[in-house]
Amino acid sequence: MKIADVSVPQLQRLLVADGVALRVGPFVTCLHSPIAGVAEGLHLVGAHHPLAKREEFVDFDIEIRPRLGLRPPFRRLAQLFVDGIAPFNPFPIGQSYAMFEWGLNWCIATRSDRFLLVHSAVVEKGGKALLLPAPPGSGKSTLCAALVCCGWRLLSDELAILRPDGLLAPIPRPVSLKNTSIDVIRHFEPSAVIGGTAHETIKGTVSYLRPPADSVDRQSEPAKPAFVVFPKYEAGSPLRFAPHSKARTLVFLAHNSFNYHVHGASGFELLADVLEHCECYDLRYGSLDDALRCVEALASAGARERGTT
């Protein structure tokens, strides 16, 4: 059964009573919250998500509770609890859905040292995964969202989860879009479902793009890394697509990892083994369409060379 199979009021009742258990790739999270915005956001952009059975092992118990602001301007606040403990300060109640997604990423990132976790978007087509590691402001989320709208499978918009066997584990949650990206994607794909909006966050306005049903349906299917592309959006910039040093890619991934230092030498060897079979590039672009064409050409060139399509 999927979230779309229950109504918003039913979902709200579940969120208040036993909680809503969701499978997210290798994990199960159970969410409790009486806040309407959470139910609405979940129902809209999480529609394709399967509901897990309550008897399953729950990795993260997440609860979002309303709180009264005790200082001026006495706004209505909420607070996130993980396993009964609040690791963060309260936030405006209108940001609750966004905080659920953010909190879930935090749980996965801080409690999964068995994997090597890199800050990167990951998408896949034709059996080959593309990593898009990049600092904020590079346009990676917009590019990731656009690729997903063009039929690429979403593994994650934030977290590349590298298993010891060198494959990437999917956690296809809604793609987070900020500020102007939201309009870019609405314009790019008018039928895209975008919701769960949080205003006035430290990053500005944040909204979420619903992932395709196919991406969610295949969330137990790992993917083999084949491409690493460093995107850099600059308005008005001509397209520039050039190979990027593998050695420097390795060091960049290591320095943009949440837990590389914990893996020591085996983390280095894992990244090195993965990169042996990857092509690495820099992609500088001023037009989203240019960037997409470039990435699609990369994927199909690879497919042609390998005799697959």
């Binding site: 593998k246 050695a247 420097r248 230092h261």
Partner: peptide, 24 residues
């Protein structure tokens, strides 16, 4: 300190265990 290395096209990535440093 143990040294791990991987070489590609004229550059080498190095990892020094113990110190825990990675560099090109």
């Amino acid at each position: 300190v143990e040294v791990h290395s991987r070489r590609w096209a004229g550059e080498t990535a190095l990892y020094f265990s113990g110190a825990g440093e990675t560099m090109v």
